[in-house]
């Protein structure tokens, strides 16, 4: 078991070295970045706690991937496998839990750790005969796969909208809409196998355009119930709602572009830093979107000649 964690540590160091970053510097930056971003989040929204919970849960679900867990189970056996899963999940959720605790969200902090331990016992089995129905089956794959991975988070966002409207909290309503867009963003976090880019009989600009179009249409579809309800309840703030929608959609576009700007590798620190800068100062999107677009085309041209 110790060897497993040492191997994880070595693999992480190698990845960081591949990105051209000294591992020690990277770890320090990660801690500083986490503290800075979380403090910034708490300073801009009163719903930061919810964001922290959603981010923590979405990171945690990554460790429940069936193939990885089957491999661990075969290698380590049942008892060690359970221990590894619990340790992993606790390690992942601990920074978020400490953050929640620090901001006096004691129940959420303990609940997160409990969920982490419970999730360690679960493997989101793909080997069911039953496939979760999705409205996105006509255009696989990001939203088809993503929806099946995160379907339980969407009702949470819709429930937040209902709460926002019932207590007359406009900001909470906007937050629930942003949450839906954030969930959609996560569908573009990992690069697909080159075969699924190569297969397309289109040039790179058309490929990118199609990806952005599908992402925009499907994200709007998911956020539509919230948008309609918000406009109905706050007709005088319709322009604000539209503005927030457009800004959040532009973050979807920048994420899609960042994914292909790093392709075939996973998005790395340079892309993450630029996106974080855009979150801090959204007008930067005007420069970052064309930059990522240019880089994506260059990367995709290798496969889509």
């Amino acid at each position: 078991m110790k060897d497993y964690f040492l191997l994880q540590y070595t693999m992480t160091n190698r990845k960081l070295a591949d990105w051209g970053i000294n591992p020690f510097v990277a770890y320090v930056l990660m801690v500083v970045g986490f503290i800075f971003l979380s403090e910034y989040l708490y300073s801009v929204t009163e719903f930061a706690g919810y964001v922290v919970l959603v981010v923590a849960l979405s990171v945690l679900t990554n460790t429940s991937e069936t193939q990885r867990n089957n491999f661990l189970l075969i290698v380590f056996g049942n008892s060690k496998y359970r221990k590894i899963r619990i340790i992993e999940n606790v390690c992942i959720s601990l920074p978020f839990s400490i953050l929640l605790f620090y901001h006096n969200a004691f129940i959420e902090s303990i609940a997160l750790l409990t969920v982490a331990v419970v999730l360690a016992g679960l493997s989101f089995k793909a080997n069911l005969n039953f496939a979760i129905p999705t409205p996105f089956y006509k255009k696989p794959f990001e939203f088809t796969v993503g929806f099946r991975n995160t379907f339980y988070l969407l009702p949470l966002a819709y429930a937040l909208t209902v709460i926002a409207l019932s207590v007359g909290n406009f900001n909470l309503g906007i937050f629930s809409m942003l949450l839906v867009v954030f969930i959609s963003l996560t569908y573009y976090a990992k690069p697909e196998n080159e075969y699924f880019v190569w297969s397309y009989a289109v040039k790179s600009p058309q490929f990118i355009f199609n990806k952005i179009k599908t992402g925009t249409v499907y994200t709007t579809f998911l956020a539509l119930p919230i948008l309609i309800a918000m406009v109905m309840f706050y007709p005088l703030k319709a322009d604000e709602i539209v503005l927030f929608t457009l800004i959040s959609l532009s973050f979807l576009w920048v994420t899609i572009l960042a994914k292909y700007a790093a392709y075939p590798n996973q998005m790395g620190l340079p892309e993450a830093v630029l996106i974080a800068m855009c979150v801090y100062y959204p007008p930067l999107l005007i420069a970052v979107i064309p930059y990522f677009y240019y880089k994506s085309i260059k990367k995709l041209n290798i496969l889509l000649k």
Partner: peptide
Amino acid sequence: LTEPFFFSKITGSEYIRLLCNARN
């Protein structure tokens, strides 16, 4: 391919649709 790649949560029919969509 010798070992075709598959996404973890995509059905057989969706896989076919994905590849056919790719070629219009």
